[in-house]
Computed example of a mutant assay.
Amino acid sequence: MRQFLIALLIFVVVGGPLALYRQWIDVPPRWNPWAPLDLRDTPNWLTAYKLRRLQGDAELCRTVLDTSALRYVALPDSTPAADCPLTNTVRVQGSEMRLSSSFIATCPVAAAFALFERHGLQPAAEQRFGQRVVQVDHVGSFACRTIAGSQRRSQHASANALDIVGFRLADGRRISVLRDWPGEDDKSLFLRQVQQAACSSFNTTLGPDYNAAHRDHFHLDMGGFRMCR
């Protein structure tokens, strides 16, 4: 009996994933860890893993981006500033909503942004205001610099981060992280909901409660450390 249980455990731990990888058993792509992420699907417990797979695979990442409404242009690897090479990057031009300007980002950041827009940002706006966000205001993604007060490279140095300062609704209302984060009105509650949604899509999400340097924006990145503050 003990040997049977050991054999069963080995099959579950090794044989199950191998069967999925070799496609010996058929499961829906959203539940197959080796199937490309479809950004239209509701996120599940495999989503974070599938996003991590995009880090070193530009072809896979662009396949994933094409399942979203994101408008982008793939960029060649380059070194626009000394000691800050850019690899696996795209220029994000917009989606079903506008951007205050286009931005360069790693393909995984672009994928996380598309996931965040569809499954976090727009549902929050519709729930809170009964309308959609039509523009995201940001202050950039790429900056060849270190983290303030340290010698560590910022995720911005590899275009692996985006700083969002506000949103515009379909009726023209503007929502500012700096102005509207304090308080308990609809705008401040919306911003808190949006921050939590961002935490589900990005590896790191930092906002005004993190420190004074983030009082006016949400910092979103796909670095190696998971943090939601």
Rank of each mutant, 00 (worst) to 15 (best):
S102F: 10
I104A: 14
A105Y: 12
P108R: 07
P108D: 07
P108T: 06
A110F: 05
A110P: 10
A111M: 13
A112D: 01
A112E: 10
F113Y: 15
A114M: 05
A114I: 03
A114Y: 00
A114E: 07
L115N: 10
L115G: 04
L115T: 03
E117C: 13
E117I: 15
R118I: 10
G120H: 01
E126N: 11
E126C: 06
R128P: 00
F129Q: 12
F129A: 12
Q131V: 06
R132N: 09
V133P: 10
V133K: 11
V136C: 11
D137C: 02
H138C: 09
V139P: 07
A143C: 10
A143Y: 09
C144A: 08
R145D: 01
T146L: 07
I147W: 06
A148T: 10
G149M: 03
G149S: 03
S150W: 04
Q151R: 14
R152P: 00
R153F: 06
R153V: 00
S154I: 00
Q155K: 07
A157S: 15
S158I: 13
S158F: 14
N160V: 03
A161G: 04
L162W: 05
D163I: 10
I164F: 02
G166L: 03
G166F: 06
F167L: 09
R168E: 13
R168C: 01
L169W: 05
D171R: 01
G172V: 00
R173W: 05
I175N: 01
I175S: 00
G183S: 11
G183A: 08
E184H: 12
D185L: 09
D186H: 07
D186L: 10
D186V: 02
K187P: 02
S188Q: 07
L189Y: 04
L189N: 13
L191T: 13
L191A: 04
R192P: 04
Q193R: 13
Q195Y: 10
A197Y: 05
A197G: 14
S200D: 15
T205R: 14
G207F: 02
D209C: 04
N211G: 03
N211F: 04
N211D: 15
A212M: 05
A212Y: 02
